[in-house]
Amino acid sequence: MNDTPPPSRDPRRDDRRDDRGPRVHGVTASFRRAPDVYRAAERIRDLGWTRWDVHTPFPIHGLDAAMGLPRSSVPRLTLLGGLTGFVTGCLLTWYTNSFDYPLVVGAKPYWSVIYPFPVLYECTILFAAFGTFFGQFLTNRLPRHHHPLFELPQFARVTDDTFMVVLEAADPRFRSPEEARDLLASLGGQDISLVRD
């Protein structure tokens, strides 16, 4: 679309575009077997790549460690949700039964943490579940219905029975598509393709 490249201080960045069209998103390679893609992931991790991913039809056991991924941050959002839920439950029961319309029931205190405990408990779980559910979408940057990878015909098989390694051009180690292509070929990748933004 835009003919003039944006000014870039990093000379490596300029390699990401060539004359043939839009910017390069990355280079992909398909693998047919889980052990092959697992070994490829270990190699790429050891080479120090950071902007890359392995697309699989199901979560491969131990692949997080093979890719060197940090622990997911979803639990923090779960905790945040749970705390919010507990406080919301406390405020709700205190405000309604003790502050706004104080109600004497069985000569008991207007509010204590004991009698509405089932409500506090359920609110905690409900909000923690919301934190987890939306946390998953937030950490995964979803929903995102358009992505350069969806343009690749063989990407449709990733949700069926194919494993795909994607080396992104945004990685500092991505010097040229040819080099990435060679790396993926040396790891046993097949059907190597260039993906453009």
Binding site: V54, H55, M67, V74, Q136, N140, L142, H146
Partner: peptide, 28 residues
């Protein structure tokens, strides 16, 4: 499908969220 791409970075968060929802559903 919310644009699911099956990248392992996504699976990592997904699996964690799934485990946590299982953990929350159990006392529930």
């Amino acid at each position: 499908a919310m644009g699911w791409r099956g990248g392992n970075r996504q699976w990592s968060n997904f699996e964690m969220a799934y485990l946590l929802l299982a953990g929350l559903s159990t006392p529930l």
